[in-house]
Design a protein around this nucleic acid. Structure first.
Lengths: 345, 345
DNA sequence: CTGAAAGCGCTTACAG
DNA sequence: CTGAAAGCGCTTACAG
């Protein structure tokens, strides 16, 4: 390994001068700088960032704490984070709580999850990262999960109730509203909804979008067209069956995620309905399977990649300007048109 | 931030003694050690690993270079890597070449990919990682991708032709052989195969498994039951159609991945066949969509998580014992029984 | 068994 | 504009 000292020796200058040349700071004669840079290049010098970090007390490394990497949302968010980090010469120290693998669907229990944070946070802190990005498994309030307050944190795919915390998420209201608009554009007037767990924030927000669309288009509100699921395939199946059992059943269903939409499609198919001629179904998420089921699912795609990019951008902006950034960001989902929505035949 | 110096001051000892106490090395009086540790705890001391690393010239950090995080295999492998790393107090520096996003399906071109490595490798090297784990997008020969030879590297989901390189993969031969055995156990005697790209190693190995199973069970070999696909859904669809067009067509199909299996299912369904009564189909991979399509796909599940664990284990063993480990490891796929295989009705 | 001191590879305030 | 020197927070060979 070649060190600054080696360059200094060979170029017959001090290590200070080499450092100035390499970093382009200090007051250094341009010709001297060229000369030193040339020697450095000849010797194939590479900065030892460990040594540099110790001195400047910045690592240009961001710790990522992901609640569960294997959750469908995580890798695309990380891809976005990395894309923006690389562009700005930041490195990523990766950490994985493995919440779903460890706790199953108890991930909703913040206190349980919080027991998994200390190790992971300590690891990242002891490596002196400049900031932390926390990626949730579900867009929920994770207040209390991280108690650390000595470095900037941005939350994505989740948020906190803290007044000073940063978060980047997608807009649930918009997602549901746009999905409804699309359904309505095909002339549907009787629209049912299968929600996620009722105590979840996305469910609430999506309901709001649903209601607003109803109101804006002066459509009938019928309580028997509202069903509560639990985000899982099977609940989509069951709730669709309940929806179809009512006398005057909906001609279109908004399922609050693709799992439930897939379940709903199954239920319709089992009852001998033809999709989308007999009934339309739209989901939210855009999972991998969504284009493999039949009919291919029309859905609102989550802006996961953009959320990752925006999280890292927020982080770097905080690091540079210390808090000029908007604290709460919400990006929009986009409609992915496939084959599960059409006008009634 | 509290430093060793602060503890030394408070405990009225030298920094050397504090260091010995903290690390449990050197020759230190047990009572003294207790006393120092107590003070350290009171002061909530946390090791500054940057400083430590600079001195000991080890970072206990492994660089992960993933060709494409969003590829279906990557996150489960990383999850396994992290699980084993955490158990052994290693950290992960994460790096993503984004090969598929950048090059599309040109990822087969190693030279093109290799142009993306230098930045990413340099990043990881300059942060002084102790070793490198490279995760491919496809189980192919990536010789030439990484020229670095100054630190241990283990390749997973890919390999090199280097005599001294480590790799952990799954056993393609076994996967195909077991899939065949399962088909055969239902009495199928006329078994077709839809392969991946013919110049790919997994295709070749899987063919070998296919032939061996035929031979071991004295089944007929019929060249018209052999079709070459390209790993994609559509080729599965087309090749299945060709397979079904021949007079004496197979009663079961081994598709060399789940994408093509899904395409094959589609083709069968379109021809009005009932699955699995009229024809059986088995895949390899076990993708997320595989349990969402109908019939749910029976398939050979890739041991991705275990490959991650084994990669990290190999890495740590190399670091500890310097090369006692087996250079090439192949783990077995496992049969996931769902609804696409049955005996002929 | 404990401590004084050197040093890991950098950066930077300061003197010249 | 350049260099000598101190120092970031650790570890460790060596002296006592």
């Amino acid at each position: 390994m070649v060190r600054i000292k080696d360059i200094a020796l060979k170029a017959n200058v001090s290590t200070a001068t080499v450092s100035y040349a390499l970093n382009g700071n200090g007051t250094i004669n341009p010709e001297m700088r060229e000369r030193v840079l040339k020697v450095a290049k000849e010797m194939n010098y590479q900065t030892n960032h460990i040594a540099k970090s110790l001195k400047i007390k910045k690592t240009r490394t961001i710790g990522i704490v992901v609640e569960d990497l294997t959750s469908f949302n995580s890798s695309e968010i990380m891809d976005g984070i990395y894309e923006y980090a690389e562009l700005n010469d930041f490195s990523i120290l990766f950490t994985n709580m493995r919440v779903v693998k460890r706790l199953g669907n108890q991930y909703a229990n913040i206190e349980l999850c919080a027991k998994l944070t200390p190790n992971v946070i300590k690891e990242v802190l002891n490596k002196q990262v400049d900031g932390l990005i926390f990626i949730g498994v579900h867009p929920r309030d994770v207040t209390g999960m991280i108690l650390e307050e000595t470095l900037p944190i941005v939350y994505t795919y989740c948020y906190t109730s803290g007044e000073t915390d940063y978060s980047v998420n997608y807009d649930d209201f918009y997602a549901a509203y746009e999905a409804m608009k699309y359904l309505i554009s095909f002339g549907h007037k009787k629209i049912g909804v299968i929600s996620g767990l009722i105590n979840s924030d996305p469910s609430r927000e999506r309901f709001n979008g649903f209601y607003q669309a109803l109101a804006d288009h002066q459509l009938q509100f019928n309580p028997s067209w509202i069903k509560t699921g639990d985000w899982e395939f099977h609940s989509g199946f069951e709730m669709a069956n309940e929806l179809l059992a009512v006398e005057d059943h909906p001609t279109a269903i908004l399922a609050m995620n693709d799992n439930m939409a897939a379940g709903a499609i199954d239920a319709c198919l089992e009852r001998g309905l033809i999709l989308p001629q007999d009934i339309s179904i739209i989901g939210i998420d855009d999972r991998e399977f969504s284009s493999y089921i039949k009919p291919k699912l029309t859905t609102m795609k989550l802006p996961l990649h953009e959320m990752g990019v925006e999280s890292m951008k927020t982080m770097i902006d905080i690091l540079n300007k210390e808090g000029q950034e908007a604290r709460i960001k919400k990006l929009n989902c986009s409609l992915v048109i496939r084959n599960s929505v059409d006008k009634l035949k």
